[in-house]
Design a protein around this nucleic acid. Structure first.
Lengths: 221, 221
DNA sequence: AGGTAAATACTCGAAGTCGGATATTTGAGC
DNA sequence: GCTCAAATATCCGACTTCGAGTATTTACCT
Protein backbone atom coordinates (compact mmCIF):
# COMPACT_ATOMS: atom_id res chain seq x y z
CA UNK A 1 0.00 0.00 0.00
CA UNK A 2 1.35 3.33 -1.18
CA UNK A 3 4.87 2.07 -1.85
CA UNK A 4 6.92 5.22 -2.14
CA UNK A 5 9.34 3.88 -4.74
CA UNK A 6 9.73 6.16 -7.73
CA UNK A 7 7.13 5.13 -10.24
CA UNK A 8 8.56 4.44 -13.70
CA UNK A 9 5.27 5.59 -15.19
CA UNK A 10 4.20 8.93 -13.77
CA UNK A 11 1.65 10.38 -16.18
CA UNK A 12 -1.84 10.52 -14.59
CA UNK A 13 -3.24 9.57 -17.98
CA UNK A 14 -1.70 6.13 -17.42
CA UNK A 15 -3.66 5.92 -14.17
CA UNK A 16 -6.86 6.69 -16.03
CA UNK A 17 -6.05 3.98 -18.58
CA UNK A 18 -5.56 1.43 -15.82
CA UNK A 19 -8.83 2.51 -14.21
CA UNK A 20 -10.74 2.15 -17.47
CA UNK A 21 -9.22 -1.24 -18.28
CA UNK A 22 -10.11 -2.47 -14.81
CA UNK A 23 -13.75 -2.19 -15.95
CA UNK A 24 -13.32 -3.94 -19.30
CA UNK A 25 -10.92 -4.27 -22.26
CA UNK A 26 -10.80 -1.31 -24.64
CA UNK A 27 -8.82 0.13 -27.52
CA UNK A 28 -7.11 3.50 -27.06
CA UNK A 29 -9.57 5.53 -29.06
CA UNK A 30 -12.45 4.20 -26.99
CA UNK A 31 -10.53 5.13 -23.84
CA UNK A 32 -10.29 8.70 -25.04
CA UNK A 33 -13.99 8.98 -25.89
CA UNK A 34 -15.01 7.34 -22.61
CA UNK A 35 -12.87 9.74 -20.61
CA UNK A 36 -14.45 12.60 -22.48
CA UNK A 37 -17.98 11.31 -21.91
CA UNK A 38 -17.40 11.02 -18.20
CA UNK A 39 -15.86 14.49 -18.06
CA UNK A 40 -12.57 13.11 -16.74
CA UNK A 41 -10.88 15.27 -19.32
CA UNK A 42 -11.47 18.17 -16.93
CA UNK A 43 -9.28 16.64 -14.26
CA UNK A 44 -6.81 14.51 -16.24
CA UNK A 45 -4.98 16.06 -19.14
CA UNK A 46 -5.74 14.03 -22.22
CA UNK A 47 -4.02 14.34 -25.53
CA UNK A 48 -3.86 11.85 -28.31
CA UNK A 49 -0.13 11.68 -28.71
CA UNK A 50 0.41 10.97 -25.02
CA UNK A 51 -2.37 8.40 -24.90
CA UNK A 52 -0.75 6.09 -27.41
CA UNK A 53 2.73 6.34 -25.94
CA UNK A 54 1.40 5.88 -22.42
CA UNK A 55 -0.48 2.74 -23.49
CA UNK A 56 2.65 1.37 -25.16
CA UNK A 57 4.64 2.13 -22.03
CA UNK A 58 2.11 0.32 -19.83
CA UNK A 59 2.33 -2.68 -22.14
CA UNK A 60 6.14 -2.74 -22.00
CA UNK A 61 5.91 -2.86 -18.21
CA UNK A 62 3.37 -5.71 -18.33
CA UNK A 63 0.67 -3.69 -16.59
CA UNK A 64 -1.62 -4.23 -19.59
CA UNK A 65 -1.70 -6.77 -22.41
CA UNK A 66 -2.81 -6.84 -26.02
CA UNK A 67 -6.04 -8.82 -26.12
CA UNK A 68 -6.71 -8.75 -29.84
CA UNK A 69 -6.16 -6.73 -32.95
CA UNK A 70 -9.17 -6.30 -35.14
CA UNK A 71 -9.81 -4.57 -38.41
CA UNK A 72 -13.26 -3.60 -39.62
CA UNK A 73 -13.40 -2.85 -43.30
CA UNK A 74 -10.65 -0.50 -44.28
CA UNK A 75 -10.46 1.47 -41.04
CA UNK A 76 -7.15 1.55 -39.24
CA UNK A 77 -6.56 -1.46 -37.03
CA UNK A 78 -7.84 -1.28 -33.50
CA UNK A 79 -5.71 -2.84 -30.82
CA UNK A 80 -7.74 -3.87 -27.79
CA UNK A 81 -5.91 -3.97 -24.46
CA UNK A 82 -6.74 -5.72 -21.17
CA UNK A 83 -5.36 -5.05 -17.68
CA UNK A 84 -3.06 -7.66 -16.07
CA UNK A 85 -2.92 -8.70 -12.40
CA UNK A 86 0.23 -6.64 -12.08
CA UNK A 87 -1.67 -3.69 -13.53
CA UNK A 88 -4.48 -4.12 -11.01
CA UNK A 89 -1.95 -4.05 -8.17
CA UNK A 90 -0.28 -0.97 -9.58
CA UNK A 91 -3.63 0.78 -9.93
CA UNK A 92 -4.51 0.25 -6.26
CA UNK A 93 -1.02 1.06 -5.05
CA UNK A 94 -0.73 4.24 -7.10
CA UNK A 95 -4.22 5.45 -6.16
CA UNK A 96 -3.47 4.80 -2.50
CA UNK A 97 -0.34 6.89 -2.68
CA UNK A 98 -2.09 9.74 -4.49
CA UNK A 99 -4.88 9.83 -1.92
CA UNK A 100 -2.73 9.52 1.19
CA UNK A 101 0.41 11.53 0.40
CA UNK A 102 0.20 15.24 -0.44
CA UNK A 103 2.89 16.30 -2.92
CA UNK A 104 4.02 19.76 -3.78
CA UNK A 105 2.57 21.01 -7.08
CA UNK A 106 4.31 23.85 -8.86
CA UNK A 107 1.65 26.22 -10.15
CA UNK A 108 2.28 29.06 -12.57
CA UNK A 109 0.67 31.65 -10.36
CA UNK A 110 2.94 30.73 -7.47
CA UNK A 111 5.95 31.17 -9.76
CA UNK A 112 4.63 34.56 -10.86
CA UNK A 113 4.04 35.68 -7.27
CA UNK A 114 7.61 34.81 -6.37
CA UNK A 115 8.91 37.06 -9.18
CA UNK A 116 6.30 39.77 -8.72
CA UNK A 117 8.77 42.60 -7.95
CA UNK A 118 9.92 42.68 -11.59
CA UNK A 119 6.62 44.49 -12.31
CA UNK A 120 5.85 47.87 -10.72
CA UNK A 121 3.35 47.66 -7.84
CA UNK A 122 0.66 49.78 -9.52
CA UNK A 123 0.79 47.58 -12.59
CA UNK A 124 0.55 44.46 -10.44
CA UNK A 125 -2.55 45.89 -8.79
CA UNK A 126 -4.27 46.32 -12.13
CA UNK A 127 -3.29 42.80 -13.20
CA UNK A 128 -4.52 41.06 -10.05
CA UNK A 129 -7.76 43.03 -10.18
CA UNK A 130 -8.30 41.54 -13.62
CA UNK A 131 -7.52 38.11 -12.23
CA UNK A 132 -10.04 38.63 -9.46
CA UNK A 133 -12.84 39.30 -11.93
CA UNK A 134 -11.97 36.21 -13.94
CA UNK A 135 -11.71 34.01 -10.87
CA UNK A 136 -15.19 35.06 -9.76
CA UNK A 137 -16.56 34.27 -13.20
CA UNK A 138 -14.85 30.89 -13.24
CA UNK A 139 -16.13 29.96 -9.79
CA UNK A 140 -19.67 30.86 -10.82
CA UNK A 141 -19.35 28.75 -13.98
CA UNK A 142 -18.09 25.78 -11.96
CA UNK A 143 -21.15 26.07 -9.72
CA UNK A 144 -23.35 26.05 -12.79
CA UNK A 145 -21.81 22.85 -14.14
CA UNK A 146 -22.18 21.11 -10.81
CA UNK A 147 -25.81 22.19 -10.47
CA UNK A 148 -26.58 20.92 -13.96
CA UNK A 149 -25.00 17.54 -13.21
CA UNK A 150 -27.06 17.28 -10.03
CA UNK A 151 -30.19 18.20 -11.98
CA UNK A 152 -29.52 15.29 -14.33
CA UNK A 153 -29.53 12.94 -11.37
CA UNK A 154 -25.81 12.28 -11.15
CA UNK A 155 -24.49 11.70 -7.62
CA UNK A 156 -22.08 14.18 -6.02
CA UNK A 157 -19.44 11.44 -6.15
CA UNK A 158 -19.17 11.97 -9.91
CA UNK A 159 -18.32 15.60 -9.64
CA UNK A 160 -16.30 15.55 -6.45
CA UNK A 161 -13.12 16.51 -8.32
CA UNK A 162 -14.89 19.58 -9.70
CA UNK A 163 -15.93 20.51 -6.17
CA UNK A 164 -12.30 20.20 -5.06
CA UNK A 165 -11.10 22.36 -7.95
CA UNK A 166 -13.67 24.98 -6.99
CA UNK A 167 -12.56 24.94 -3.36
CA UNK A 168 -9.00 25.70 -4.48
CA UNK A 169 -10.18 28.47 -6.77
CA UNK A 170 -12.13 30.04 -3.96
CA UNK A 171 -9.07 30.00 -1.75
CA UNK A 172 -7.10 31.62 -4.55
CA UNK A 173 -9.75 34.26 -5.00
CA UNK A 174 -9.74 35.13 -1.30
CA UNK A 175 -5.96 35.37 -1.38
CA UNK A 176 -5.96 37.58 -4.47
CA UNK A 177 -8.69 39.82 -3.08
CA UNK A 178 -6.64 40.31 0.05
CA UNK A 179 -3.48 41.02 -1.95
CA UNK A 180 -5.29 43.59 -4.10
CA UNK A 181 -6.51 45.38 -0.99
CA UNK A 182 -3.05 45.52 0.54
CA UNK A 183 -1.65 46.89 -2.71
CA UNK A 184 -4.40 49.49 -2.94
CA UNK A 185 -4.04 50.86 0.56
CA UNK A 186 -0.27 50.46 0.68
CA UNK A 187 -0.18 48.18 3.72
CA UNK A 188 1.74 45.42 1.97
CA UNK A 189 4.99 45.05 3.82
CA UNK A 190 7.95 45.90 1.56
CA UNK A 191 5.91 47.89 -0.95
CA UNK A 192 7.84 51.12 -0.30
CA UNK A 193 11.20 49.62 -1.31
CA UNK A 194 9.55 47.94 -4.27
CA UNK A 195 7.97 51.19 -5.44
CA UNK A 196 11.13 53.28 -4.98
CA UNK A 197 13.18 50.76 -6.97
CA UNK A 198 10.78 51.14 -9.88
CA UNK A 199 10.71 54.92 -9.73
CA UNK A 200 14.23 55.02 -11.12
CA UNK A 201 12.86 53.29 -14.20
CA UNK A 202 14.93 50.18 -13.50
CA UNK A 203 13.97 46.91 -11.94
CA UNK A 204 14.93 46.50 -8.29
CA UNK A 205 18.40 45.04 -7.91
CA UNK A 206 19.71 42.80 -5.19
CA UNK A 207 21.45 45.81 -3.64
CA UNK A 208 18.21 47.76 -3.33
CA UNK A 209 16.86 44.97 -1.18
CA UNK A 210 20.08 44.45 0.73
CA UNK A 211 20.19 48.12 1.73
CA UNK A 212 16.57 47.95 2.84
CA UNK A 213 16.91 44.88 5.02
CA UNK A 214 19.54 44.17 7.64
CA UNK A 215 21.96 43.24 4.88
CA UNK A 216 22.21 39.41 4.87
CA UNK A 217 20.87 38.27 1.46
CA UNK A 218 23.72 35.74 1.21
CA UNK A 219 22.81 34.17 4.52
CA UNK A 220 19.28 32.91 4.07
CA UNK A 221 18.74 29.52 5.64
CA UNK B 1 0.22 43.41 -22.31
CA UNK B 2 -0.52 39.76 -21.69
CA UNK B 3 -0.58 38.74 -25.35
CA UNK B 4 -2.36 35.42 -25.34
CA UNK B 5 -0.38 33.89 -28.20
CA UNK B 6 1.03 30.47 -27.37
CA UNK B 7 4.46 31.01 -25.90
CA UNK B 8 7.16 28.95 -27.60
CA UNK B 9 9.00 28.83 -24.27
CA UNK B 10 6.69 27.66 -21.52
CA UNK B 11 8.90 26.44 -18.68
CA UNK B 12 8.63 28.75 -15.62
CA UNK B 13 12.35 28.21 -15.11
CA UNK B 14 12.87 30.31 -18.24
CA UNK B 15 10.86 33.08 -16.59
CA UNK B 16 13.12 32.93 -13.55
CA UNK B 17 16.18 33.14 -15.81
CA UNK B 18 14.80 36.25 -17.50
CA UNK B 19 14.03 37.79 -14.11
CA UNK B 20 17.54 37.13 -12.82
CA UNK B 21 19.20 38.46 -15.96
CA UNK B 22 17.08 41.61 -15.75
CA UNK B 23 19.10 42.39 -12.61
CA UNK B 24 22.54 41.68 -14.04
CA UNK B 25 24.40 39.27 -16.35
CA UNK B 26 25.10 35.80 -14.96
CA UNK B 27 26.27 32.36 -15.94
CA UNK B 28 23.89 29.41 -15.53
CA UNK B 29 25.48 27.95 -12.47
CA UNK B 30 25.22 31.29 -10.68
CA UNK B 31 21.54 31.44 -11.65
CA UNK B 32 20.95 28.12 -9.97
CA UNK B 33 22.73 29.11 -6.76
CA UNK B 34 20.99 32.50 -6.65
CA UNK B 35 17.59 30.90 -7.06
CA UNK B 36 18.43 28.53 -4.26
CA UNK B 37 19.63 31.31 -1.96
CA UNK B 38 16.45 33.26 -2.46
CA UNK B 39 14.34 30.16 -1.85
CA UNK B 40 12.78 30.42 -5.31
CA UNK B 41 13.45 26.73 -5.66
CA UNK B 42 10.37 26.22 -3.49
CA UNK B 43 8.10 27.80 -6.05
CA UNK B 44 9.87 27.17 -9.35
CA UNK B 45 11.07 23.68 -10.17
CA UNK B 46 14.79 23.82 -10.78
CA UNK B 47 16.91 21.07 -12.16
CA UNK B 48 20.29 21.28 -13.80
CA UNK B 49 19.50 19.55 -17.03
CA UNK B 50 16.52 21.80 -17.68
CA UNK B 51 18.42 24.94 -16.75
CA UNK B 52 21.00 24.56 -19.46
CA UNK B 53 18.54 23.61 -22.18
CA UNK B 54 16.20 26.42 -21.18
CA UNK B 55 19.06 28.94 -21.35
CA UNK B 56 20.05 27.66 -24.78
CA UNK B 57 16.45 27.89 -25.91
CA UNK B 58 16.18 31.50 -24.69
CA UNK B 59 19.35 32.34 -26.61
CA UNK B 60 18.04 30.77 -29.81
CA UNK B 61 14.98 32.98 -29.54
CA UNK B 62 17.12 36.10 -28.97
CA UNK B 63 15.66 36.76 -25.52
CA UNK B 64 19.14 36.55 -24.03
CA UNK B 65 22.66 36.90 -25.46
CA UNK B 66 26.09 35.51 -24.71
CA UNK B 67 28.06 38.32 -23.09
CA UNK B 68 31.38 36.58 -22.62
CA UNK B 69 32.96 33.22 -22.08
CA UNK B 70 35.59 33.08 -19.41
CA UNK B 71 37.82 30.40 -18.04
CA UNK B 72 39.49 30.61 -14.66
CA UNK B 73 42.32 28.21 -14.23
CA UNK B 74 41.33 24.76 -15.33
CA UNK B 75 37.68 24.97 -14.31
CA UNK B 76 35.08 24.37 -16.98
CA UNK B 77 34.28 27.44 -19.03
CA UNK B 78 31.62 29.77 -17.72
CA UNK B 79 29.35 31.35 -20.29
CA UNK B 80 27.89 34.61 -19.03
CA UNK B 81 24.51 35.65 -20.48
CA UNK B 82 22.75 39.04 -20.61
CA UNK B 83 19.09 39.83 -21.25
CA UNK B 84 18.13 41.53 -24.53
CA UNK B 85 15.46 44.20 -25.08
CA UNK B 86 13.28 41.50 -26.59
CA UNK B 87 13.85 39.45 -23.46
CA UNK B 88 12.80 42.35 -21.22
CA UNK B 89 9.57 42.71 -23.20
CA UNK B 90 8.90 39.00 -22.98
CA UNK B 91 9.50 39.04 -19.22
CA UNK B 92 6.93 41.80 -18.63
CA UNK B 93 4.44 40.32 -21.07
CA UNK B 94 4.70 36.82 -19.66
CA UNK B 95 4.51 38.00 -16.05
CA UNK B 96 1.46 40.11 -16.89
CA UNK B 97 -0.30 37.13 -18.38
CA UNK B 98 0.55 34.89 -15.44
CA UNK B 99 -0.76 37.44 -12.95
CA UNK B 100 -3.92 38.41 -14.80
CA UNK B 101 -5.15 35.16 -16.37
CA UNK B 102 -6.00 32.13 -14.24
CA UNK B 103 -5.24 28.85 -16.01
CA UNK B 104 -6.37 25.38 -15.10
CA UNK B 105 -3.68 23.36 -13.35
CA UNK B 106 -3.98 19.58 -13.34
CA UNK B 107 -3.09 18.34 -9.88
CA UNK B 108 -2.50 14.73 -8.97
CA UNK B 109 -4.99 14.77 -6.13
CA UNK B 110 -7.73 16.01 -8.43
CA UNK B 111 -6.96 13.13 -10.80
CA UNK B 112 -7.10 10.68 -7.91
CA UNK B 113 -10.43 12.09 -6.68
CA UNK B 114 -11.94 11.65 -10.09
CA UNK B 115 -10.99 7.94 -10.11
CA UNK B 116 -11.73 7.38 -6.42
CA UNK B 117 -14.42 4.69 -6.94
CA UNK B 118 -11.77 2.15 -8.01
CA UNK B 119 -10.88 1.91 -4.30
CA UNK B 120 -13.46 0.67 -1.77
CA UNK B 121 -14.97 3.48 0.34
CA UNK B 122 -13.63 2.21 3.67
CA UNK B 123 -10.12 2.09 2.26
CA UNK B 124 -10.49 5.58 0.87
CA UNK B 125 -11.50 6.80 4.30
CA UNK B 126 -8.31 5.43 5.86
CA UNK B 127 -6.20 6.95 3.10
CA UNK B 128 -7.68 10.45 3.30
CA UNK B 129 -7.40 10.37 7.09
CA UNK B 130 -3.69 9.83 6.61
CA UNK B 131 -3.60 12.69 4.15
CA UNK B 132 -5.34 14.92 6.65
CA UNK B 133 -2.64 14.32 9.27
CA UNK B 134 0.11 15.07 6.78
CA UNK B 135 -1.59 18.21 5.51
CA UNK B 136 -1.86 19.57 9.04
CA UNK B 137 1.81 18.87 9.63
CA UNK B 138 2.77 20.53 6.35
CA UNK B 139 0.69 23.63 7.07
CA UNK B 140 2.31 23.97 10.49
CA UNK B 141 5.78 23.63 8.94
CA UNK B 142 4.98 26.33 6.37
CA UNK B 143 3.95 28.66 9.17
CA UNK B 144 7.26 27.96 10.89
CA UNK B 145 9.27 28.86 7.81
CA UNK B 146 7.35 32.09 7.32
CA UNK B 147 7.77 33.07 10.98
CA UNK B 148 11.50 32.43 10.77
CA UNK B 149 11.83 34.59 7.67
CA UNK B 150 9.93 37.38 9.38
CA UNK B 151 12.18 37.04 12.44
CA UNK B 152 15.20 37.57 10.21
CA UNK B 153 13.73 40.88 9.08
CA UNK B 154 12.64 39.84 5.60
CA UNK B 155 9.52 41.58 4.32
CA UNK B 156 6.31 39.62 3.67
CA UNK B 157 6.78 40.38 -0.02
CA UNK B 158 9.61 37.84 -0.13
CA UNK B 159 7.54 34.99 1.15
CA UNK B 160 4.24 35.87 -0.45
CA UNK B 161 4.37 32.79 -2.67
CA UNK B 162 4.75 30.62 0.42
CA UNK B 163 1.71 32.30 1.92
CA UNK B 164 -0.25 31.53 -1.24
CA UNK B 165 0.85 27.90 -1.20
CA UNK B 166 -0.27 27.68 2.42
CA UNK B 167 -3.67 29.17 1.62
CA UNK B 168 -4.20 26.46 -1.01
CA UNK B 169 -3.11 23.74 1.38
CA UNK B 170 -5.54 25.00 3.99
CA UNK B 171 -8.37 24.88 1.48
CA UNK B 172 -7.36 21.35 0.60
CA UNK B 173 -7.27 20.36 4.25
CA UNK B 174 -10.76 21.72 4.84
CA UNK B 175 -12.01 19.86 1.79
CA UNK B 176 -10.39 16.60 2.85
CA UNK B 177 -11.65 16.93 6.42
CA UNK B 178 -15.16 17.38 5.09
CA UNK B 179 -14.81 14.41 2.74
CA UNK B 180 -13.55 12.18 5.55
CA UNK B 181 -16.54 13.11 7.68
CA UNK B 182 -19.01 12.33 4.92
CA UNK B 183 -17.33 8.98 4.34
CA UNK B 184 -17.39 8.19 8.04
CA UNK B 185 -21.06 8.94 8.64
CA UNK B 186 -22.18 7.65 5.24
CA UNK B 187 -23.78 10.89 4.07
CA UNK B 188 -21.71 11.09 0.89
CA UNK B 189 -24.15 10.95 -1.96
CA UNK B 190 -23.60 7.83 -4.08
CA UNK B 191 -21.70 5.92 -1.40
CA UNK B 192 -24.25 3.11 -1.24
CA UNK B 193 -23.84 2.17 -4.93
CA UNK B 194 -20.10 2.49 -4.56
CA UNK B 195 -20.00 0.20 -1.54
CA UNK B 196 -22.32 -2.41 -3.08
CA UNK B 197 -20.21 -2.57 -6.20
CA UNK B 198 -17.16 -3.37 -4.10
CA UNK B 199 -18.92 -5.98 -2.00
CA UNK B 200 -18.91 -8.35 -4.94
CA UNK B 201 -15.13 -8.14 -4.86
CA UNK B 202 -15.01 -6.45 -8.25
CA UNK B 203 -14.59 -2.84 -9.17
CA UNK B 204 -17.80 -0.99 -10.03
CA UNK B 205 -18.57 -1.25 -13.73
CA UNK B 206 -20.30 1.26 -15.95
CA UNK B 207 -23.46 -0.83 -15.71
CA UNK B 208 -23.54 -0.65 -11.92
CA UNK B 209 -23.69 3.10 -12.20
CA UNK B 210 -26.11 3.09 -15.11
CA UNK B 211 -28.58 0.94 -13.20
CA UNK B 212 -28.29 3.22 -10.19
CA UNK B 213 -28.91 6.46 -12.05
CA UNK B 214 -31.67 7.18 -14.56
CA UNK B 215 -29.66 5.30 -17.19
CA UNK B 216 -28.11 7.99 -19.44
CA UNK B 217 -24.28 7.57 -19.11
CA UNK B 218 -23.90 7.96 -22.87
CA UNK B 219 -25.75 11.25 -22.84
CA UNK B 220 -23.71 13.45 -20.54
CA UNK B 221 -23.39 16.93 -21.96
C1' DA C 1 51.10 16.92 4.33
C1' DG C 2 47.39 14.17 3.10
C1' DG C 3 42.75 13.03 2.39
C1' DT C 4 38.03 13.89 1.64
C1' DA C 5 33.91 16.48 1.44
C1' DA C 6 31.79 20.30 -0.70
C1' DA C 7 31.54 23.52 -4.30
C1' DT C 8 32.11 24.65 -9.19
C1' DA C 9 30.39 24.22 -13.85
C1' DC C 10 28.46 21.77 -17.09
C1' DT C 11 27.22 17.48 -20.43
C1' DC C 12 24.65 13.60 -22.05
C1' DG C 13 21.23 10.29 -23.46
C1' DA C 14 16.98 7.97 -22.51
C1' DA C 15 12.42 8.86 -22.03
C1' DG C 16 8.35 11.54 -22.22
C1' DT C 17 5.22 15.22 -24.14
C1' DC C 18 2.75 17.65 -27.57
C1' DG C 19 0.14 19.22 -31.39
C1' DG C 20 -0.78 18.38 -35.81
C1' DA C 21 -0.85 15.24 -39.86
C1' DT C 22 -3.00 11.21 -42.04
C1' DA C 23 -6.42 8.25 -43.97
C1' DT C 24 -10.85 6.18 -43.97
C1' DT C 25 -15.93 5.82 -42.97
C1' DT C 26 -20.37 7.43 -41.51
C1' DG C 27 -24.14 10.68 -41.37
C1' DA C 28 -26.87 14.77 -42.45
C1' DG C 29 -28.62 17.84 -45.60
C1' DC C 30 -29.76 19.36 -50.18
C1' DG D 1 -26.63 10.52 -55.22
C1' DC D 2 -23.33 14.14 -53.96
C1' DT D 3 -20.69 16.81 -50.88
C1' DC D 4 -18.85 18.29 -46.63
C1' DA D 5 -18.44 17.93 -41.73
C1' DA D 6 -17.75 14.94 -38.03
C1' DA D 7 -16.26 10.67 -36.22
C1' DT D 8 -12.88 6.84 -36.22
C1' DA D 9 -8.19 5.42 -35.11
C1' DT D 10 -3.44 6.06 -35.02
C1' DC D 11 1.33 7.85 -36.09
C1' DC D 12 5.14 11.07 -36.29
C1' DG D 13 8.93 14.11 -35.36
C1' DA D 14 10.42 18.10 -33.04
C1' DC D 15 11.05 19.58 -28.71
C1' DT D 16 11.48 19.11 -23.42
C1' DT D 17 12.50 17.09 -19.26
C1' DC D 18 15.08 14.58 -16.01
C1' DG D 19 18.46 12.40 -13.32
C1' DA D 20 22.91 10.98 -13.25
C1' DG D 21 27.54 11.43 -14.65
C1' DT D 22 32.09 14.05 -15.22
C1' DA D 23 35.98 16.54 -13.95
C1' DT D 24 38.31 20.05 -11.53
C1' DT D 25 39.22 23.17 -7.48
C1' DT D 26 38.76 24.87 -2.87
C1' DA D 27 38.17 24.30 2.12
C1' DC D 28 38.65 21.96 6.09
C1' DC D 29 40.18 18.53 9.28
C1' DT D 30 43.56 15.68 11.27
Amino acid sequence: MAGMTKRRIANPLALAVLALLSERPMHPYEMSTTLRERAKEESIKLNYGSLYSVVESLRRHDLIDVQETIREGKRPERTVYAITDLGRDELVDWMSELLAVPVKEFTRFEAALSLMPVIAPDDVLRLVETRLVRLDAEIAAMGGVMAEMARQGMPYLWSIEADYARALRRAERDFVRNLAEKLRDGTLEGIDIWRRAHEGGDLPSEDDWARAVGRPLRSIK
